[in-house]
Write a protein that binds this DNA or RNA. Sequence first.
DNA 1: GGACTCTTGGTTTTT
DNA 2: CCAAGAGTCC
Length: 712
Amino acid sequence: MEEMLRKLTAVQREAVTHVEGPLLVLAGPGSGKTRVITHRVGYLISRGIQPREILAITFTNKAADEMRQRLAAMRLRRGSTICTFHSLAARLLREFADKAGLVRNFTIYDQADQVAALRDVLKTLEIDRKNFPPGKMLGHISNCKNDLETPEQYAARHSDFKGKIIARIYTAYQKQLEKNAALDFDDLLMRFALLLQKDQELRDLLNRRYKYVLVDEYQDTNHCQYQMARGLTLNHGNLCVTGDPDQSIYGWRGADIGNILAFEEDYPQAKVVRLEENFRSIPEVLNLANSLIRFNKQRKEKKLFTSIASGVLPELIEYDDEDDEAHGMAQAIKELRQGGLEYRQIAVFYRVNWMSRVLEEALRQEKIPYQIVRGIEFFQRKEIKDLLGYMKFLSNPADRVSLKRIINRPTRGIGETSVKKLFQYCDNTGRDLWETLTGIDQVEVLGTAAKTRIKKFVTMVNQWRAKMEAPVAELMQTVYDQSGLMAVLAAEKTEDSAEYAEELINDAAKYDATTEAGSLDDYLQQIALFSDTDAYDEQAGVVSLMTLHAAKGLEFPAVIIIGVEEGLIPHSRSMDTDKELEEERRLLFVGITRAQQRLFISYANNRTVHGANQATIRSGFLRGLEGLEFRRESDFEDDWDFDNDFSRKIGIDDDEPAPGFKTGELVRHGKFGIGRIQHTITSGDNPRVVVNFNSAGQKTLALKYAKLEKLD
DNA sequence: GGACTCTTGGTTTTT
DNA sequence: CCAAGAGTCC
């Protein structure tokens, strides 16, 4: 351990070795944050803390996996809990199901399930889907849950026409989920946060269980997650959070950047460590990132610097249209490869998923191998949803959404009307769905034909239920076969569907092989909480394509960002407020700071939207950037004077120190006292120096105004 | 009840 | 342009 600590910088070591009490690690991109967190876990263990007393909360399952591997590589004792907020909540809600008033085998609803459930609700409430679209309604509901607001509270707060209706929808939706023994993503967090709030006994128990809690990507936590982190550490206060306000990109789904910005006020005893040295990118990339993010007002001033050697200027390329852009980038990838990079070292980012299409086409034509990092796409396929629907219903026979999905797929002559009657019967008599199904003879509203068919279905399901303890893949294979799904898929013109279904069974087999105490419930939970980035395979040896959101936490020697246009970045649906605009800018910042060496940014003057060609405008974010090499690959000549609008000068350190001051020199400031120059910024006509003052901390000072006195 | 065609609306980002 | 929903026919 001692040796490992020696390899860290002084600031990193500070973060690793601060054991007791709240700790805020403000970590810039590429500052070795992951390393610090893993080392911190290692350090705690080396100090005699039991591994099982440590809880590390990551943003994705992928990040959790990686962390586990790193810890394993450090050959530490295992047993720490490393997972995401969602899986932690799911796990603990199962463990303390009684306290939470839940059944242990609850189902987790994904977006499609939520929509299906909400549609049913709207139908029974006889609310028009056009005026109250399910997606929008779910958005409202999600916001409420993220703020821990129950349907009752929402209803009490709204007396206007629309608010009242939404309150009715929210209430009925919750009832529906309850009936189905299902929780949506937000419920997981909300239910657990509320439980933690009101159940002191449980809180004490968990505070004793997890004595040290670490939360990564804290800038993207919402109110529920904030409450969870707080509740889990209330008794001992050993909460370490890490994050970067400049990389907060999930505000739209409830993430509150205020959580990290106000951490010090929230936890006055908190120690704050800033990791500002970047170990990832060449100064040219960092300079560009800095010159972009400085336009944001909602932030903590922070200057990124690096001692990595200078490289090539990032390029900005203009194209005529998206086809040219895609082919141009394919060309760039080829050139990068000739320059010695491997495919796996190159990534392309875009704002919206549909932008991958043109790109794929171009890459296929140019025979460049690629992967699209979109994990959940697989699980959104119809055949996968069908097969999983069976599994979900087996796991939780109260789940109407799943039953509705599978009872007539393949067709068994049990139509919509029969299902509707069945559900109505349950609602009217208050009887359990599965109970009703097994005693279907008593349901007078159904005809004999329907009853016979349902009985047959129930017999089939019962046979599977007898095998619930079997390995998941085995059970799934049986279901796939005996349900008739296999025959249906095999009969389809394209073989894709059957292949996908088999891929799912293989995935289950992998789960069986790697999980010791696996169960169907647990497998389904893992799948439900699968994320896009989880699909990123760094071993694949291919170019990676992904959205800017999915790029978070990753790094690549070469990065290409396409479609940097008004309406895309910033996206047309989030450019109304400064808050939204700043988040969009942060998104571009995240993209830029993924690059280690080479960075290409591009836009096209025309783009096909809705099948029609539209003229586009380069993103306003590009204005005022420093350190870009501009290249025009389009015929179109506008009156844009790049050299006037942009500055090609780059200013991080070394080459041109600010007049009279050098990195490392001791200086005195009238107000801040004595400090040492961290680095100098010479870009633009406003040379500045970043100084670490002994008492006042780090400050960026304009030489024009600040009177600095040299000391040595 | 189910398979088919036509119309229409609409493209963020995701656990 | 493309997916989902309504409408139509067997």
